[in-house]
């Protein structure tokens, strides 16, 4: 089934790792919709959130190919899991005096903060699910968007173990990963 997949990729924090991951996606013709990178809870381990569009089998192949990179420790597909997936957006909206009140109302509806204001602009900061940010952007577009930046989603499973739970140096880690991955033909990254 073709759908959007959110992958969490834990990698060793070495120079060039992002290049390796992105280069691999390009090489295998996998299209990345969004990618975010930052520190994880473990020292020396970075966490990437990748959003890719594709058939389930294609995305399984993405996971297997990612595992072939030496720096990749764990790949988890959050698709179908109960998870929080939020992005941050900064939106600089043209705000003439007569519109300012309306814009602030819209911002309030979406829980966006005003983080800067000038006589002609308001700078909104919003976090939340992608669709919610889409809706906010659509609402303020009519006033004139001067500048817009979105981070792409960062995602995390609700409750339970962390995405890297099976990776904390437990001896059975790799065996679990490889057998679950392939033995059942199940989705590589689901654990």
């Amino acid at each position: 089934m073709k759908q959007r997949h959110t992958l969490v990729v834990l990698v060793e924090d070495h120079p060039g790792v992002l290049n390796r991951v992105v280069s691999l996606m390009r090489r295998r013709s996998f299209n990345i919709d969004a990618i975010t990178v930052g520190h994880s809870e473990q020292p020396g381990v970075s966490r990437m959130t990748l959003v890719v569009d594709g058939e389930d089998e294609e995305v399984e192949q993405v996971g297997k190919q990612l595992y072939k990179l030496m720096e990749v420790l764990k790949v988890t597909d959050l698709t179908g899991e109960s998870c929080v997936s939020h992005e941050l957006a900064l939106i600089k909206v043209a705000a003439k005096a007569q519109h300012r009140g309306e814009i602030l109302q819209v911002a309030a509806i979406f829980g966006a903060k005003v983080v800067d204001a000038t006589p002609t602009t308001l700078l909104l900061e919003a976090t939340g699910r992608e669709e919610r940010i889409d809706a906010l952007v659509a609402m303020v577009r009519g006033y004139g968007i001067r500048e817009l930046v979105r981070t792409g989603p960062a995602a995390m499973v609700r409750g339970g173990p962390s995405a890297g739970a099976k990776e904390n140096g437990r001896p059975e880690r790799d065996r679990d990963r490889k057998t679950v991955t392939v033995g059942d033909g199940a989705l590589a990254m689901a654990n």
Binding site: E57, E60, Q61, K64, Q65, Y67, K68, K178, T179, T181, V182, G183, G185, A188
Partner: peptide, 17 residues
């Protein structure tokens, strides 16, 4: 020996890594 080869080109009924 390479799990990424399983199912890459040909649908596989019994993979053995």
């Amino acid at each position: 020996v390479d799990p990424a080869e399983i199912g890459k080109n040909v649908r596989t009924d019994v993979p053995v890594v």
